[in-house]
Design a protein around this nucleic acid. Structure first.
Length: 805
DNA sequence: GAGTTTGAAACT
DNA sequence: CAGTTTCAAACTC
């Protein structure tokens, strides 16, 4: 599309390139220029939305990922331009990203990426051009559309170079597919991508309204990029239907927030759309603000906005779902978390995401790239579930943006997903994490549920269908299943969700009565998410309405303990897969509780024990008495068994192996490490990074969320559990459920990764109840080193984030 | 669903 | 830093 639009885009691109932020980003980490792009965007976004202390919190970083940022950028700038620009840059960046990816492992894949990238660019260009058209037209007619669509496209092209590339690849293929799909309107399950494309096409044809959908799809694609083609297809397919449904039902509420939610979802992970929407209506998450406002304005302007949003939400959800499925394959546990994230993700989560981006970029980007590669390969297959591909380093990657997504899917709900997720996924409580949950497909799910719940009735029937289809497809199926469940508004389902979510933490619900949900007692608050419907809290101040209060309180708490909002369970390695691979064996404990537990009566066999709850074995840091932690005792006895088994499996599944090793090592190493007292000073940034790196990751956020973020660890635990079938307690911790399916990738990463982060976290913790020994992990594990390098690189990004705050 | 237990978080 | 209190989740009945 050589049209003037392109020229505009090119100009915008040049602007971006010229922008100091962009340059800064590029300079930051050699690892992933692509991410840098994101970052830049994030920065922009950040500037828009005040990302207060939240960002500072590691938690946040972990959870959120590029998405938010990206979107923000989009929102900020002419999206179309962005997209085009991004596309161009992406190509260039891709090279960098590719390099990073190569570093990680996927050198082989890189070429593929490039190719896809090229194709992608073209495709992106087309999209952008189309989008630009829309934008142009829309402004006239529908402004809001331009925003969403543009953004999406931009996301597509520019946001995540990796994803973009991947997406581009997918998108390209998708477009045709979509068309076909639109014509045929066939298989929803298989052809999410097609649907998306269709939706896009339709939108184009239709106009602004659809643009939003398209953009959503694009976003989804971006996030899902890896497996996108499939996921997208599914998304696309469903979206149309869903759109109609959702739109009708949800139109009123979601519109504005959807974008944000989606973004958040991506970042944080799945959370209930409905809830989020509801909340968002009141107020966006912590971070939401300027961007949302802008979006909202634009959207509001259009009556169709609702529809678009709905669609977008749907798409995003679908995407999320898809991602979730994919990622779920990678990171299962995330699913639940994602839900919560999505709906409630706070801005800081965004920040976290950003951080993640930086960190994850290395990891994620690599992961993304890897995924993308895989995806690309899989794309051809269309529906092919991601699975094991992940075995390779890529598996790890999944976590990055996807972790949240993965979390979104509850193990129970998504059996298929679990299997698929094997590749990589990460549960994160905080989710804030994690992770960021960039994509947080799960969030998409949940949100959907919430929102859908209302609409669910509408969808309700379909879900089953979708579910079936999805079942076939696997990842998608899982997504659908989730969506179905979510959709099914029946209280029981909700309950299940909540329960699951609660377990997973993704959908945390609190029951605070005296803390006003402004203390770490409150799980929601601790996880960096707003309280939502399911919460039974009293006098709750943890709501968007009280954003200022929440932020202030958060700052306070963080001032006391910078790591307060960091995931309790640390995944040591988020860093690069490469490292993870190397480290896997070396790294002591892939996941450990940040501070360690202090159990005296529970023998670390009940959820009272945070370690157990997080699915992590107790470590030296723990001061527990009579530790019988099924995931790993202080002494390491129990875990060893599991580990041994795991090891056996490892041979088969590298990831698993790594995890187990990690566990063993962690235990053993922990001892060693403790003795060593790894010096790696864990600065908050590092911690954050670590979080970010957390594949969950996130996670983040932990996403970030204490537990959320802990995803990484949980994954580890899971790994151990999974692998360690023997002693494993059936009552798996929240994470465990997720992890059951936990993708190997995650595990490997964690294992590989090195656990430095954890250590850092521990050390960083102000209270420092726990011992700092963990440092050893970082230092000890080679992988860690590599991870650190990455971290360092990524670090620069952080500063920017905080400053923005 | 109410009550108890538990351990983290917060406070002193 | 240690001890105590507060709090809410986890658990039990």
């Amino acid at each position: 599309m050589d049209t003037p639009e392109k020229t505009q885009i090119a100009n915008s691109l040049s602007k971006f390139e010229d922008s100091p932020v962009f340059n800064y980003i590029n300079s930051l980490s050699p690892i992933k220029p692509v991410k840098s792009i994101h970052i830049t965007q994030t920065f922009n976004s950040l500037s828009f939305a005040s990302l207060p202390s939240v960002f500072t919190s590691p938690h946040v970083s972990s959870h959120k990922e590029s998405r938010f940022i990206i979107r923000h950028n989009y929102s900020d700038q002419s999206k179309s331009d962005f997209s085009s620009v991004n596309g161009d840059k992406v190509s260039s960046n891709e090279g960098v990203a590719m390099d990073a990816g190569q570093l990680y492992d996927n050198s082989a894949d890189i070429p593929e990426h490039f190719d896809p990238g090229v194709s992608i660019e073209e495709s992106s260009v087309d999209l952008t051009s189309e989008q630009s058209r829309f934008t142009i037209e829309l402004p006239q007619t529908l402004k809001y559309d331009s925003g969403s669509p543009d953004r999406d496209p931009t996301h597509y092209c520019g946001t995540e170079a990796e994803s973009a590339l991947e997406l581009a690849g997918t998108s390209v293929s998708l477009v045709p597919v979509v068309q076909k799909a639109s014509e045929n309107g066939s298989c929803e399950g298989e052809l999410h991508l097609q649907r998306i494309c269709q939706t896009e096409q339709n939108k184009q044809a239709i106009g602004c309204d659809w643009e939003g959908l398209i953009s959503d799809a694009a976003e989804l694609l971006v996030f899902n990029s890896p497996n996108d083609s499939q996921a997208f297809k599914g998304l696309i397919d469903t979206p149309l239907d869903l759109e109609a449904r959702l739109c009708t039902s949800l139109m009123s509420q979601f519109q504005q927030n959807d974008m944000m939610d989606i973004e958040k979802m991506h970042m944080a992970g799945p959370s209930r759309c409905g809830e989020q929407y509801g909340n968002e209506d009141q107020t966006p998450h912590f971070g939401e603000t300027s961007e949302l406002k802008e979006i909202n304005q634009t959207q509001h302007s259009l009556g169709n906005e609702d529809l678009t949003k709905c669609i977008n939400s749907d798409l995003s959800e679908e995407k999320n779902y898809d991602e979730g499925t994919r990622f779920s394959s990678a990171s299962e546990p995330i699913s639940n978390l994602h839900r919560g994230f999505r709906r409630r993700c706070l801005d800081f989560e965004m920040v976290g995401a950003q951080r993640r981006n930086t960190n994850d970029d290395s990891n994620c980007s690599s992961s993304m790239l890897l995924k993308s590669d895989e995806d690309i390969a899989s794309k051809d297959n269309q529906v092919v579930p991601i699975k094991p591909g992940c075995n390779s380093s890529r598996c790890m990657l999944p976590g990055i943006g996807l972790h949240l997504n993965a979390l979104a899917i509850t193990s129970k709900d998504n059996k298929n997903v679990k299997h698929e997720k094997l590749s990589c996924g990460r549960p994160q409580r905080n989710l804030p994490s994690p992770t960021s949950s960039l994509h947080s497909p799960t969030t998409g799910h949940e949100p959907r549920h919430d929102s859908l719940t209302t609409a669910s009735g509408e969808r309700g029937t379909e879900p089953a269908e979708n579910g079936i289809q999805l079942a076939e497809d696997g990842s998608q199926a899982s997504i659908y299943l989730l969506s179905e469940e979510c959709i099914q508004d029946s209280p029981k389902k909700k309950r299940r969700r909540l329960e699951q979510a609660g377990e997973s933490e993704s959908c945390k619900r609190c029951n605070c009565k005296k803390s006003k949900c402004l203390k770490l007692y409150c799980e929601c608050f601790a996880a960096g998410v707003y309280c939502i419907e399911p919460c039974a809290c009293q006098d709750c101040f943890n709501k968007p309405i009280h954003e200022d209060t929440v932020l202030a309180t958060r700052k306070q708490i963080e001032s006391r303990n910078p790591l307060a909002f960091a995931p309790k369970v640390m995944r040591s390695c988020d860093s690069v897969p490469e490292v993870a691979q190397d480290d896997s064996s070396q790294t002591p404990a892939s996941a450990r509780h940040k501070r360690g537990c202090n159990c005296k009566k529970s023998s670390c066999l009940k959820k009272y024990c945070e370690c157990y709850q997080g699915g992590v074995g107790c470590s030296i840091n723990c001061r527990c008495e009579g530790c019988k932690n099924a995931f790993g005792r202080k002494d390491g006895s129990a875990p060893t068994e599991i580990e041994a088994e795991v090891e056996e499996d490892e041979t088969e599944t590298c990831e698993k192996v790594t995890v187990d090793k990690a566990v063993h090592k962690t235990e053993v190493l922990n001892n060693e490490e403790q003795s060593r007292g790894s010096a790696l000073p864990i600065t908050p940034f590092q911690l954050c990074r670590s979080w970010v790196q957390l594949p969950f990751s996130s996670k983040c956020k932990p996403p970030p969320p204490r537990s959320l973020l802990s995803v990484g660890p949980s994954s580890v635990l899971y790994n151990g559990q999974k692998y360690g079938k023997p002693n494993i307690i059936r009552t798996q911790p929240k994470f465990e459920k997720h992890f059951q399916t936990v993708p190997e990738d995650e595990m490997p990463e964690i294992l590989r990764g090195n656990c430095s982060p954890c250590n850092g976290m521990k050390t960083a913790s102000p209270k420092s109840k726990r011992v700092s020994p963990p440092h050893s992990e970082l230092g000890s594990s080679p992988g860690r080193r590599s991870g650190r390098k990455l971290i360092l690189q990524s670090i620069p990004s952080f500063p920017s984030l905080t400053p923005q705050q």
